[in-house]
Design a protein around this nucleic acid. Structure first.
Lengths: 342, 342
DNA sequence: GGCCTCACCGTAAACGTTTACGAAAACATG
DNA sequence: CATGTTTTCGTAAACGTTTACGGTGAGGCC
């Protein structure tokens, strides 16, 4: 593997000159720069990242912290690859690379994160599975590690975040269902720790009451992620006394489980229970067609990367750097799973 | 950020001693080792990866080269996260981390790969989307970069690979369909360059003839990946003269498209066309139930990581290192999409 | 005490970069 | 020609590790 020293020797100049030539510094004669670049191309020189990192204190890597907690199918299974793709498309413009880190979930995740940042494995991080109280935020903020959250948290250190517009989704869904005659609307929420649970719950309560309906906590149902969660949800709802006529959810896998659960019970999705929530294009195979909210994951990834770039001191031009805090909106895809209540 | 030098200063010993203590070398007094470890824990010392990499010539990172070519839904969307998870579970035991690299597809991918290996970003790589003639194999083999292929290629440099047992899948599927009276069986294959196309095609031809059937190249249908591909496939088949009664596929998204396409035409999956191929647990939502072949992705990831570990000189104990070349078998999940032909 | 053997530890070099600094060369100006 | 200015380049230090090597002191043996 050819190093900068090899180049220097080969050309009869000093390593300093070679480095300056390669990095487009000003104080090098155009002629010698040419020679250096030519030789570099011929010998297939590529700068060693470790050397560079050590000297300049940054690695060129961006870490995406992924928690794969549950056993079954995860929400992320359908989401993340697309987001990664979008992120990388931006990062590439800055010579950065995406590193996906598989973090242990919840209790051990702080410890894991500490090790990661200590070793200086990445210049910046993206946090997902954000919790309502999220110690990771303090951990990173205290050490001045640039990061962006994909999701929100009540632990606020002024960090940037990107999130899907769950408020908008729930608001629109309730509006829509209400207009179609539904009066008892269930809401599927994720487990306690996750911030998303409260975002959905608060919006739900506000909107339910805005429409003059009574808030009933029995209609807020904690649901496990994945298709199993959806199946269980279907059974739970159908066994309720004073049964709701519609359900709203945020996990794109849930509708698959809901459809399966209902079918198992001999019921018809959209007719015996209106179903409305977030999904991906894969949902188009459901029959009857699922009315759902969709988001452009690739673009989301791009936006996350841009927010991250702003946090990197050596790349950011604006001063002070802008703190991006955005909810990216869903678009509605109409189907037949939320027909008017007859 | 505390470095080894800080530790040394704080304890009044030399940096050499500190390093040896931390790395469990033999020539350091137990008492001082204790002191060093205690101080390290107190000051929150974590070794800087760049320094270590530079010195020892390895980065502690394993790269997974992911090509995200197509626009629509990809096969990988349902696959990879699980595989990553399995890989990381093994890599963690060795202090390694997984880095997912988003490679541009096909023509630019060699160039990209060259840059990656030159910068010494990763100690070892996993290649996916393996092509029949795959220049990346030579590129890596020439430079002695350890790598494992997830998939196979005819470009053979003695590298290890892991692949799904597509031969077994196609063989079993034909056997099964034949036993149920099907005589004209279509096969969906991916695009030209990919090695998988030929694996499937060869097995198909052999098995078809073994059952005394005539090989008809019209029954081998190149199909775009994703749900769109599945829809198109359904239409294509149903518009054929001398129409097949069954179809075999390898993309886990295809059945979703097939079901949708058939439904659009007013046909019933499993009845008007037998459907049999690879899928994930998400397929359980299809109605009628999809008969399909499944694989434990997490375990596949673990196996890939193990194969990779064997290639790392500083970790491998056995000499010479074993070259893993395995096809991991599918298990059949019976459903109602391949009913006997009446 | 002289000598050898250990156990333990400090010194310094090396990995491949970037960059502050100063030196040399080239050129212009008086 | 002397001096000043600018352009170009070489030198060397620094980033944080690991490790080969040599040195110091303690202890054992005669």
């Amino acid at each position: 593997m050819t190093s900068i020293k090899d180049l220097a020797q080969h050309l009869g100049v000093s390593i300093g000159t070679v480095s300056r030539a390669l990095n487009d510094k000003f104080d090098v004669k155009p002629a010698t720069r040419e020679r250096v670049l030519k030789a570099a191309a011929e010998l297939g020189y590529v700068p060693n990242q470790a050397g560079r990192s050590l000297r300049q204190g940054n690695t060129g890597l961006v870490g995406f912290v992924l928690e794969t907690s549950s056993e079954g199918m995860m929400q992320g299974d359908l989401f993340f690859i697309r987001v990664f793709d979008g992120m990388q498309s931006v990062l590439s413009e800055y010579g950065l690379h995406l590193m996906v880190m598989m973090s242990p979930s919840s209790e051990k995740s702080d410890e894991y994160l500490q090790k990661i940042v200590g070793r200086r494995l990445a210049d910046a991080l993206v946090l997902s599975s954000t919790r309502r109280i999220d110690p990771r935020v303090n951990l990173l903020a205290d050490q001045n590690i640039p990061f962006v959250m994909l999701g929100r948290s009540q632990t606020d250190r002024g960090q940037p975040w990107l999130d899907l517009d769950f408020e908008g989704m729930v608001t629109d869904a309730i509006e829509r269902l209400h207009a179609r005659g539904h009066r008892r609307i269930a809401l599927a929420v994720p487990r306690q720790e996750l911030n998303l649970r409260y975002v959905m719950l608060d919006t739900y309560r506000t909107q339910i009451e805005r429409h003059g309906l009574a808030f009933d906590e029995n209609l807020v149902i904690e649901t496990a992620p994945g298709d199993n969660g959806g199946v269980a949800l279907a059974h739970h709802i159908m066994e309720m006394e004073d049964r709701p006529s519609a359900v709203i959810f945020s996990d794109p896998i849930h509708p698959f489980g809901l459809y399966r659960g209902l079918t198992e019970m001999g019921l018809v999705p959209g007719k015996d229970l209106a179903i409305l929530g977030i999904a991906t294009r894969l949902a188009t195979v459901l029959n009857p067609n699922l009315t759902h909210y969709r988001v452009r994951l690739f673009d989301l990834g791009r936006r996350v990367a841009q927010a991250l770039i702003h946090r990197l001191p050596h790349l950011n031009t604006e001063n002070p750097p802008p703190v991006i805090r955005e909810r990216v909106p869903f678009t509605l895809v109409e189907g037949d799973s939320d027909l008017p209540l007859e």
